[in-house]
Design a protein around this nucleic acid. Structure first.
Length: 472
DNA sequence: TGGGGTTAT
DNA sequence: ATAACCC
């Protein structure tokens, strides 16, 4: 890695230099200080990141589909859960991931729509990502309703376009975290301020073109942008200035609120007596490294100080397509086959519309068991090339051979001669490759996806050990 | 707990 | 193939 040190909260050394450089800007009405100094910082660790977070996304999509739902308390139901709900419903006590029965008790007027089919949510989700990509191509998706955008370059360009008399008239858009005042002589403040203006334009475009509202957080890294985006909640935005970084991170009541510290790590930290951000910041790094491994320990320790050097990675098209269904009980091979066929039919549609070809298929099951918090098993195998070729073309029957492959995977996992009880089935297409439409040419050997992309990039390689059809 | 996703080991 | 993380 080239980067030596944190961004995030600091750059105290630079701050004073900037203040000196710019101290005469107001009086002289010149931006030379900005222009001279902005360019050399372009590849430094001072970034401007926005996190965009849609308000109760599934519920919004449903309200757009059926405007009569707009002024009613609305919940989106998957199986017996209300997975999300609009703000009308929240006022009446409905919470995310609340049991349907409990939600109805709390709020008898609650209107429920089924949200088990994610198709429209997925489509709207990608429209949002594509809209954000118009601002800057560096957009990273997080789930269906969140995106990070690296605005660093855009901000630099806007600062270079700025006329000299415009600087003193610049204003922040939305909230400033902790009500901190902006110093127009501080280049870090100016850059984040410009970021807040771009964030406002993004939210305007999302509303005008897609009818969606959401929050945005602007800060110097992904962690802080994400944390600050939720400070003012529906349909508002907040910018974090460096001086308030510690205030933000210490406003968290528990380490589990830090993105990147998940269920397992939280349990492990709690066993060490660590519950608050301060506990983690001051805990022995050596002991932490022994308990969690050096990589996790060093990463979460940095996170606890608000430091996060992870880049915004453009998501691009999805790496996998999957469909799953959960149920109380599936205990026969015939029933499993029917459920797999349903999942497959939807998946084949999606894969066809994407245009790329999956080269691997995977079957995932969850077995019934009273305990065991997380128990999923999977088997995968390469898709035979003659099946891949038929995938885009509606003419040939691709269902039959695919179902046969999947049932072989099924019988490899489940001994169908013994009683079994499944509660989930899922089919996943992955290892997606672009069509090879290139005509023969001298360079093709080096450019063809199956050779170049897979074996050298390390990103989409054949690292997984597939069970081959010959094994059966 | 749903119905998805990602990367690392 | 699994385990961790995210929504």
């Amino acid at each position: 890695g080239v980067e030596l040190e944190e961004e995030g909260c600091g750059n105290e050394e630079d701050d004073e230099a900037w203040a000196m450089e710019l101290s005469d800007v107001g009086a002289a009405g010149s931006l030379q200080g900005v222009h001279d100094q902005v360019l050399p910082t372009q590849n430094s660790s001072t970034r401007v990141i926005v996190h965009v977070d849609l308000d109760c996304f599934y519920a919004q999509v449903e309200m757009i589909s059926n405007p009569e739902l707009k002024d009613k308390p609305l919940g989106v139901q998957q199986k017996y859960l209300v997975v999300t709900c609009n703000y009308e419903a929240r006022k009446l006590g409905v919470k995310k991931l609340m049991n349907v029965r409990v939600a109805k008790e709390k709020c008898p007027q609650l209107v429920l729509v089924n949200g088990e089919d994610l198709t429209r949510y997925r489509e709207m989700s990608y429209k949002v990502t594509e809209l954000l990509e118009e601002f800057s191509p560096v957009v990273e998706r997080l789930g269906f309703d969140e995106n990070f955008v690296d605005l660093t370059e855009m901000v630099e360009k806007r600062l270079q376009q700025l006329q000299s008399d415009e600087l003193s008239a610049m204003t922040v858009s939305g909230h400033v975290y902790n009500n901190q005042s902006i110093n127009l002589h501080d280049i870090l403040h100016i850059r984040l301020l410009v970021g807040s203006q771009i964030a406002a334009e993004m939210r305007e475009a999302m509303y005008n073109r897609l009818g969606l509202t959401g929050c945005a957080g602007v800060a110097s890294n992904k962690l802080l942008a994400k944390l600050v985006s939720g400070v003012f909640k529906p349909n508002q935005q907040t910018v974090l200035l460096p001086e308030s970084c510690q205030h933000l991170i210490h406003s968290l009541n528990h380490i589990k609120e830090i993105p990147g510290i998940g269920y397992k790590t939280t349990k492990c930290l709690e066993a060490l007596g660590i519950t608050s951000v301060h506990d983690l910041q001051t805990f022995s790094s050596k002991i932490l490294e022994k308990e969690l491994g050096i990589l996790v320990a060093q990463r979460i320790l940095k996170l606890s100080f608000g430091e996060d050097n992870s880049p915004v990675i453009p998501s691009g098209p999805p790496q996998s397509f999957s469909e799953e269904d959960s149920f109380k009980k599936c205990s026969s091979e015939v029933e499993a086959k029917k459920r797999i066929e349903e999942l497959l039919a939807s998946l084949l549609n999606r894969v066809c519309r994407d245009g790329r070809k999956p080269h691997t298929v995977r079957l995932i099951i969850r077995r019934y068991s009273s305990e065991k918090h997380y128990g999923r098993e999977s088997r995968q195998c390469p898709i035979p090339s003659h099946v891949i070729q038929k995938l885009g073309t509606g003419n040939y029957d691709v269902m039959t051979p695919m179902v046969e492959i999947l049932m072989k995977l099924f019988r490899n996992m489940v001994n169908v001669k013994m009683p079994f009880h499944l509660t989930l089935l899922s089919v996943c297409f992955c290892n997606l490759k672009a069509l090879n439409t290139a005509k023969k040419g001298p360079m093709d050997y080096y450019l063809t996806p199956s050779l170049t992309t897979a074996s050298h990039s390390g990103k989409r390689s054949f690292k997984m050990k597939d069970t081959h059809m010959e094994d059966f």
